[in-house]
């Protein structure tokens, strides 16, 4: 529990701090105001759009907008089961759990697909390296050993549990 008394310590200048107060006066700060309101919203979606990037991959877009934005990323388009889940998610608006929760599920499915895809291409993923355990071992050997020990222990326990002889004879 906090033992200190109630106290006030406000109100004076701090010349000991380099740059103290130099942006305190909005009139002297070129970054103010941080929103230059121009009521452009009142005209709706009427601005002259930039040239449109050709759509060369499948791009899912929010149903809260009428179109695909003028530019977009093309990395990792939807594929496989995770892609199907993502397509389902985009039937729902950003306001809906029906949008976000399937996307989280798709991400987990996608991780499994990634491992299978690696193996299919003859690359068995080095999970130890991908999890950065080399760096963790270097800077936290005790913590790393404890974690690995726990994983091995749980695996051994599970192995024993599933292979134990249940026969009473």
């Amino acid at each position: 529990m906090e033992k200190r008394p109630f106290e006030n310590n406000r109100g004076s200048e701090r010349p000991d701090i380099k740059g103290w107060g130099i942006d305190a006066d909005p009139k002297n700060d070129p970054t103010y105001p941080y929103k230059h309101r121009n009521n452009g919203e009142h005209k709706g979606y009427t601005w002259e759009r930039p040239p449109l990037q050709p759509v060369t991959v499948e791009v899912l877009h929010s149903n809260e907008r009428p179109n695909i934005t003028a530019v977009f990323g093309t990395t990792s388009p939807p594929t496989g089961l995770s892609g199907a889940i993502r397509r389902f998610a985009f039937k729902y608006s950003e306001n809906s759990y029906g949008h976000w929760l399937p996307l989280l599920l798709a991400d987990r499915v996608n991780a499994v697909e990634g491992v299978l895809d690696d193996i299919r291409h003859g690359h068995f993923p080095n999970i130890f390296a991908e999890k950065g355990y080399k760096g963790k071992w270097k800077h936290d050997p005790a913590g790393t050993a404890a974690r690995i020990g726990m994983i091995v222990g749980v695996a051994a326990l599970a192995f024993w549990w599933f292979t134990r002889d249940d026969d009473d004879d």
């Binding site: 791009v59 877009h61 929010s62 809260e64 003028a70 977009f72």
Partner: peptide, 10 residues
């Protein structure tokens, strides 16, 4: 920006 992210408006 409203012209850089098709997947979300927020």
């Amino acid at each position: 920006c409203h012209e850089s992210n098709p997947q979300a408006t927020a």
